[in-house]
Amino acid sequence: MSAPNKSYDPVEVEALKPEVIDRAKDEALAAVAAAGDLESLREVKAAHAGDRSPLALANREIGALPPHAKAEAGKRVGQARGAVGQALKQRQEELERERDERVLVEEAVDVTLPYERMPSGARHPLTTFCERVEDIFVAMGYEVAEGPEAEAEWFNFDALNIAPDHPARTMQDTFFVRPEKDGGEDGPAEGTGEGDSGVVLRTHTSPVQIRTMLDREPPVYVICPGRVFRTDELDATHTPVFTQVELLAVDEGLTMADLKGTLDHMVRELFGEGVHTRLRPNYFPFTEPSAEMDMVCYRCHGESVGDPDNPCRTCSSEGWIELGGCGMVNPRVLTACGVDPEKYSGFAFGFGIERMMMFRHNVEDMRDMVEGDVRFTRPFGMEI
């Protein structure tokens, strides 16, 4: 049996030569320093500190050395591997810190920007204002009445004492519903005119008043809100589709004084104390006598009239604001609805909600009310 090889020199093992260990360490440190990101550093770690790296292979050769040579070789390899491991750890910390700083900049969230979610819905100010008007009259004992928007000509014109040759019945003012062709296709019937269907898009909510008087016996106290249609161009002060509110009261002994008191109560509730109305003579086929109703300017209360130093934009320094038409129900209308004009009398008035909103909220362009821009509705409050 041979004796242990105590004279074995580890320098003679190529992988354990000092210059080879130093070269492997220097290459590893240079690769670590050159790593520009964490992915590159992982590749460097696998190449210079992994199981198949030069220093790891050199460490395996130590086991073949005699006992007295293992300590020196192990120290040399261990110091080299320790230096590489420390360099890897420091470089990883640096790259992680750089990554975190970059993420904070590149993925920063600007909390002042609008949030990315659907905004809460809101009821349109025309709807809420119309309901406010309804509440005023419901509190006085009136009922809210509704009717169809596509209406027969008899309800829209004839029953209201509007003659067949009245200008409002022409195509210039009224939308006529086209009759159906044979086979069900929309279009004018052969040999007929555009308006021969006898159906129109209602030009006012007065047909609702007619239907109400036909359906019930007096006394009648109703308010009739709803959309109406006229062939107007869409501009700052007109729209072909708008909202109208009309009122009808039929009872024994009603007079113009009752009408005036009702109007005064309405404008006070809408615009505050000190606001009142006046009536100017006018003509409407469905009322007799008829009048235009004005209310005193709720801004200047008439004080801007004749005062050039204190002009009022709301009423243009005229002192009054026109609201709409009114009057006592024409006896012919009562007769058409089966109401005895010798026993009963009535009054009625109507106005546009859009026009009233323009006055009340200083809206300059009526198109803002119909374009659906939330920037218009938000200032009125978010009523879900």
Rank of each mutant, 00 (worst) to 15 (best):
Q172N: 14
R97P: 01
E131G: 09
R132G: 14
P164S: 10
V133Y: 02
V133G: 01
F129Q: 11
V144Y: 01
P148M: 10
C130Q: 15
D135L: 11
E131T: 05
G121Q: 08
E146L: 13
P114T: 02
P125M: 08
E96H: 05
E101D: 03
T170M: 11
E106Y: 03
T112I: 07
D158M: 03
F175E: 08
F157I: 01
G141Q: 11
T112F: 08
P114F: 07
E146R: 14
F129K: 11
A139H: 13
T170D: 14
T112P: 07
L95V: 01
R123P: 02
E134G: 03
E93S: 13
Q172M: 07
M171Q: 15
L104P: 00
F157E: 00
T174H: 09
P148H: 09
A152M: 06
E143T: 12
E94F: 07
D110F: 09
D173V: 03
V105N: 04
A108D: 04
A168R: 09
N161W: 05
E98S: 06
R99Y: 00
F157N: 07
D158C: 03
E131M: 13
F137H: 07
R102P: 00
E134N: 13
F157Y: 10
R117K: 10
L95I: 05
V138Y: 05
D100Y: 00
M171F: 09
D158T: 12
L95K: 10
R97M: 07
E101M: 00
E143M: 12
M118P: 00
F155H: 15
G141F: 01
C130W: 06
V105L: 14
R169C: 05
A122E: 09
P125Q: 02
E134Y: 09
P164A: 11
E98Q: 15
T127C: 04
E96G: 08
I162L: 04
A159S: 13
S120M: 11
F175D: 08
A168H: 05
Q92L: 02
F155L: 12
I162V: 14
V105S: 10
N161I: 00
W154Y: 12
Q92R: 15
Q92K: 15
L113G: 05
V133W: 04
H124V: 02
V138K: 15
V133C: 11
A145S: 14
E149Y: 04
H124D: 04
R97L: 10
P114K: 05
A145V: 13
D135Y: 09
T174R: 05
P164F: 04
V103K: 09
E96C: 03
G147P: 03
T170A: 14
